[in-house]
């Protein structure tokens, strides 16, 4: 898992994986990260799993909207009858 120039460290790649999925890598860092994924099927597998987990989480977490009566209370308190949900 290494070439003459650089060695592949799975732990470091996994660390980068979180940053990559959170959109916290620069373009260059992202390219380096993707290059590392091509070099190691373990890292690639971890990446795919983590990505699927994130999607799963986002889809399953319950989302609620402000109830209409609470919105009305806000309109009344602020004296702004026209406040409208967008």
């Amino acid at each position: 898992m290494s070439n003459a120039m650089t060695s592949h460290d799975c732990n470091k790649v996994v660390l980068k994986m979180y940053l990559a999925l959170d959109g916290e890598l620069s373009t260059t860092e992202m390219q380096e990260f993707l290059f590392e994924l091509d070099r190691c099927s373990c890292c690639f597998r971890s990446f795919e799993q983590e990505k699927a987990f994130r999607t799963f989480l986002v889809n399953k977490i319950e989302r609620r909207c402000m109830p209409e009566n609470a919105l009305q209370k806000l309109r009344d308190t602020l004296g702004m009858p026209n406040i409208a949900r967008i």
Partner: peptide, 9 residues
């Protein structure tokens, strides 16, 4: 106001 629902959530 556009952030009201996400704030509530």
């Amino acid at each position: 106001v556009p952030h009201m629902d996400t704030l509530y959530n």
